[in-house]
Amino acid sequence: MAEAQHAISEAKHDEKAGSWEPKIVGFLCNWCSYAGADLCGVSRYQYPTNIRTVRVMCSTRISPHIVLDLFKAGADGILLGGCHIGDCHYISGNFYTEKRVRLMKKLLEDAGVDPSRLRLEWVSASEGEKFSKVVTEFTDHVRKLGPSAVKKQEAAKAKVMAADDASVTFRLRALVGKEYNLETKGNVYKNTLDKAELEKLIDVATMDEFERSLILVLAKGKSRSVKELGSIMEVPTDKVLRHIVVLRQKNLISMEHPEGFTPTYRTIEIGGEQ
């Protein structure tokens, strides 16, 4: 919340300077929302110039990594456009989009980014006017939220980096990849799982993976103690320690020689990368 406040005051500052314009990227599916945006143009419905659209075949193509990477790079808002549920050109693509967007929003929330900076909208090929309304409203919304904190604050950027790292972990990708089928078709025993319970489970896993990724980001090139990590992350030290145990098992973090009685930890970097 504090960050949102900060962002708003920052936005006011920038507005005075008159320089800041929200940078918004839109991923539109070829068959519905891109066609809807085309119709919007043909019908001459006007909207703010901030959005830059990228055409993809299906909204299901957009992995959490693509969205989080863009937030990491300083995007102020991202719009995903797909076909209405039931109308997907690829039968079931947008069911998976919905699940992934839920994960993306959860990760943004964990990383302290207002999840409403990401918006998923269903726009059909005949909804030209809707497209202009969606873009206008979303641009106004992002303008009110102000510029993304990522570009100016290292701490904010570290969190979004961790969210991005978490989004590509096997655990989260496998969970969210299987979520829809577990809910509708069931597991190997044909038992379907309860939606709310499954979401709760995924949320816990998401928080865990985010915190672990954040530890790795913070301890990259800098040895840190559990206490230090806990205070930066605002996470209880026992929880940090549990994460560190898991990370050590996976050989992702190493214990440095303790100084005095306090051990410190440093992220193991794979040779050659960055």
């Binding site: 830059r52 993809v56 075949m57 299906c58 193509r61 693509i66 690829y90 998976y96 496998a174």
Partner: peptide, 27 residues
Amino acid sequence: CGCCGATCPEGAITMTNYTDAQLLAES
């Protein structure tokens, strides 16, 4: 459609002509 690409837990699948690298570079 790219669903498998966005799903693959290992990030082992991409799409010809719509690679992650192309989409990320463009956006």
